[in-house]
């Protein structure tokens, strides 16, 4: 079973990202690429808006209470719906999202926050980053460009066509791996400062 994780920031919600992913053509595309589960972390206090978006794009939904994935079944306010044969599961926020990504996720579609980017890259998952250009101080674009330049991820804006293209690329192109970020010189610096 192939699964996609969509994640917004923990502190700032990003409805445009969720709306883009929930588009019928995108869900169809995901199904064509063999994904049968779409997991969405929609962010704190965003539950009712998420359900509205689901209703708007996916239509009437039935709810399932359990998924069979422990981390998600224990998460707060997990919602599961089915659309075009794709199981859509939304939850508010997960403290240990790394375990979820490591064990159950094949592709991550994320906002361009460094935390989420690093989670996906360090666990060596394919990553599409959607830049939130409504943020006031937009360093998301800069950081996404830097990483995209190193071919670590695919960077787009919240746009259906761009997402469809990026999904194709994620299937056909091979991205680079981030490698180990342990640095011996920096460790020495910490050591020297501490003992001197």
């Amino acid at each position: 079973m192939k699964s996609v994780l969509v994640t917004c920031g923990a502190t700032v919600s990003f409805p445009a990202l969720i709306e883009t992913v929930l588009n019928r053509p995108v869900i169809g595309k995901l199904k064509n690429l063999g994904y049968t589960r779409l997991v969405v972390q929609y962010g704190r206090g965003f539950e009712s808006s998420f359900l509205q978006l689901v209703e708007k794009h996916v239509g009437e939904f039935s709810e399932k209470s359990r998924l069979g994935i422990d981390v998600l079944d224990n998460a707060k306010n997990t919602r599961v719906v089915l659309a075009e044969g794709v199981e859509i599961c939304g939850f508010e926020y997960l403290h240990d999202i790394e375990t979820l990504i490591a064990k159950h996720i094949d592709l991550v579609i994320s906002h361009a926050g460094t935390g989420s980017i690093l989670d996906a890259l360090r666990l060596e998952k394919k990553l599409i980053v959607v830049v939130n250009d409504t943020l006031m101080d937009n360093h998301q674009q800069l950081i996404a460009d830097k990483f995209a330049h190193q071919r670590l991820l695919w960077s787009i804006h919240a746009d259906t066509q761009q997402l469809l293209n990026a999904l194709d690329k994620s299937e056909n192109e091979v991205s680079e791996k981030i490698g180990n970020t342990y640095n011996k010189q920096f460790e020495k610096l910490l050591y020297n400062v501490a003992i001197n």
């Binding site: 920031g9 923990a10 926050g113 460094t114 935390g115 690093l118 989670d119 970020t181």
Partner: peptide, 10 residues
């Protein structure tokens, strides 16, 4: 918070 905490944990 958020990203800052993530980086600190790493």
């Amino acid at each position: 918070s958020g990203g800052h905490t993530g980086e600190m944990l790493r």
